[in-house]
């Protein structure tokens, strides 16, 4: 079932005439773990911004299970879609637990005084991302890896069916990258969530997600299962680079190696 769908979306930045989405259409399958791939500047972050309604399309609709998002109240949308940014930004530091509780906002009224239940959910999400020991630490004392986990915990507090992530591995070392994506994968399976993630590392995309959406020059190049779409031809078209693809001997997932043009290899 199509959870989220872009139908003929037109979008332009008011200050940048060169960028333009024209009749952009794609969908995210319910229960899937999808990666949004594309070269720099192709419009990946813009798509995420459009989903969270931070930017508004000029024409077309972004539809949630048949209902256009703009017809729903912002709070209702926040109960359906959660967003994990690339990095942690805050005006003034606070404790990790207070920060994570901010994720409960879509479920709170008025002064937003959190109940015991909200506290329990906060603690549960922190332990889900294996960060419960960081509960009372201040945000500015965390490492990048810890910050990413906390960001994820905050989004999980929203208890939404769809989770959006903008380059969750951006500031992380290789170990931390694996850790966060493994956590994400297990949580997604456990909670039967839908995940849409923007990622640059193709290997990790192959390792952890099942579907992908290719974005090329502000157009949808194509979308579908990784097994079908992660090919040298597509990679050449989308990124303009030559790839050699074989199988990761441990996981069986596609493994991508970049090679220079002089060395020709036969790919299957």
């Amino acid at each position: 079932m199509k959870l989220l769908e872009f139908r003929n979306v037109h979008f332009k930045y008011s200050g940048d005439p060169s960028f333009c989405f024209k009749e952009l259409s794609f969908f995210v399958q319910e229960g899937s773990f999808t990666t949004l791939l594309g070269a720099n500047g192709s419009g990946k972050s813009t798509i995420l911004n459009l989903i969270t309604q931070f930017l508004k399309p000029k024409q077309g609709d972004i539809v949630w299970k048949g209902t256009p998002l703009h017809t729903l109240a912002l709070k209702q949308c926040a109960q359906k879609i959660a967003f994990v940014p690339q990095s942690m930004e805050f005006a003034f530091s606070m404790s990790v637990f207070d920060y994570v509780l901010l994720g409960r906002a879509p479920h709170l009224q008025g002064l937003g005084l959190e109940s015991t239940e909200d506290h329990e959910i906060g603690e549960a999400t922190l332990s889900m991302v294996q960060a419960l020991h960081l509960k009372d630490r201040l945000l500015d004392t965390l490492s990048h890896g810890e910050k990413q986990k906390v960001l994820l915990a905050k989004a999980l507090c929203q208890e939404t069916p769809l989770l959006l992530l903008d380059e969750p591995t951006a500031h992380l070392d290789i170990q931390a990258q694996f850790e966060i994506l493994s956590l994400l994968r297990s949580i997604q399976k456990q909670k039967k969530m839908t995940v849409l993630m923007v990622l640059h590392q193709l290997d990790l995309a192959c390792e952890f997600s099942e579907e992908l959406i290719f974005l090329k020059s502000e157009k949808i190049y194509g979308q579908g299962p990784i097994s079908e779409w992660m090919t040298t031809g597509h990679l050449k078209n989308v990124y303009g680079f030559n790839a050699f693809i074989d199988q990761n001997p441990f996981t069986g997932k596609p493994r991508i190696t970049h090679h220079r043009e002089e060395v020709e290899q036969i790919n299957h």
Binding site: N49, T52, Q53, F54, A73, L74, K75, Q76, C77, A78, Q79, I81, A82, F83, P85, E89, F90, A91, F92, M94, L102, G103, A105, P106, Q158, L164
Partner: peptide, 11 residues
């Protein structure tokens, strides 16, 4: 306190 897009995403 959060970034603008995060605040928006929280409703």
């Amino acid at each position: 306190n959060l970034s603008a897009i995060e605040t928006q995403a929280l409703g």
